[in-house]
Design a protein around this nucleic acid. Structure first.
Lengths: 214, 214
DNA sequence: TCGGCACGTAGACAACTGTATACACCCAGA
DNA sequence: TCTGGGTGTATACAGTTGTCTACGTGCCGA
């Protein structure tokens, strides 16, 4: 990834700011952008072909940022003895520190540009596979789950956290609650999945046994 | 809710169409709208104060539609003897039949207009409480769960389904898979929640016992 | 039959949009 | 030292935007 300098960087940062605060990435206006960046409108054409091109490059910029972030998270997680709860905290902290990128990702994942949507989906799917691999290698989840199941849950979890991160960012007084909720979410998914093959009757019996130990 | 007629209805329908296909509700343009509706641009001002006003009214229109839809779903569910899986099918079918409203809701829930976001959040929270009440009254979920837990899971589920509905709408060949995934999601949440109070060790022991019955 | 009113249209305005062409600067390599 | 390319600017143009004022309908109650 090229290191951006001068005007181009200013334009990308302006795009992130506007896309976060007042618009979406796909509804940016060229002159608004230039105004925000403090540049002449035509400077835009020195760096981008058109607004679509800008959108894609910004997304690339975000994707690179996120990839680096994920790599760092994995390192932190490896060095930590603790389990899922601190990881969840780290993840939310990361989103909090990358508010603009997070907001853009959430808005465009189901936004009006098919191109950006595909790119984001691919990115999230890759993250889900990585997460699943991590979880299984480190033995952080109940055994006996198939890889497919772990991937499926990872997929759900990543999307859940991504959207929940928007609330986490914008509602500071709810952050602790959101974090705990997320931990419950993950635990319930994995524990529930461990018992997937039980029928309702078998499950009820199991619960009854647990609640009234002999 | 007033029944809309003539030009106003045309404008709202045009807004839904454009918001679904090419834009978001908050980035609509007045003249584009009039063009799509086949009306003179100024006709807009006969019915709406400005574009924000239109957005709010469209949201109201959608909310009313959804409320009616939910009411109907509850009736269908009551008359049905079957459990969650058919309900999930009905819910997705409903979203499929209300593609425009669904798309708008998804896009604006984390969109750039705080006003619309609040309105949508309120609506979803109300739906979650209704869903929780329904589930508990009809005894469709494991007993011994607190109301708070059921509401929390309902809240998560509604958002999960709402976003997943976008994929359901747009990827016809994945519909069955999405539906089954959703059922697993819900089952795991409730089953997992039933075992919330177990420690990891207790849970592992339980799983071991289930997998190797004496 | 008349008067008002809801609805839609016509034309105009200044502001803003994306884009093209032409010009000015700085810095590396010959 | 000259030169060429990368970068930013100035000016211009046609098309589009939101909004204003004024005008023409058709309908409904008095």
């Amino acid at each position: 990834m090229n290191v951006m300098t001068g005007g181009k960087l200013k334009l990308v940062q302006a795009a992130l700011k506007l896309a976060t605060e007042t618009r979406s990435l796909t509804s940016l206006k060229l002159r608004e952008l230039a105004r925000e960046a403090g540049l002449n409108p035509n400077t835009f054409y020195r760096h981008f072909e058109n607004l679509d091109d800008l959108g894609l490059q910004v997304l690339g910029y975000i994707a690179a940022e996120m990839k680096a972030g994920v790599r760092q998270l994995r390192l932190v997680a490896e060095s930590s003895e603790q389990a899922a709860n601190t990881t969840v905290a780290f993840v939310y902290q990361y989103f909090l520190e990358n508010k603009a990128a997070t907001t853009v990702a959430v808005r465009e994942l189901y936004g009006s540009s098919p191109l950006l949507r595909r790119a984001l989906e691919t990115q999230l799917d890759a993250s889900a596979r990585e997460m699943a691999e991590d979880l299984m290698q480190r033995g952080l989840i109940p055994r006996h789950l198939t890889e497919q199941t772990v991937v499926e849950i990872s997929h759900m979890t990543i999307r859940y956290i991504l959207f929940r991160a928007m609330d986490y960012i914008e509602k500071p007084h709810q952050r602790e609650a959101i974090q705990q909720e997320t931990e419950r979410f993950i635990n319930r998914q994995f524990r529930g999945a461990t018992l997937d093959q039980l029928s309702n009757e078998e499950f009820d019996a199991l619960v009854a046994a647990v609640r009234q130990p002999a």
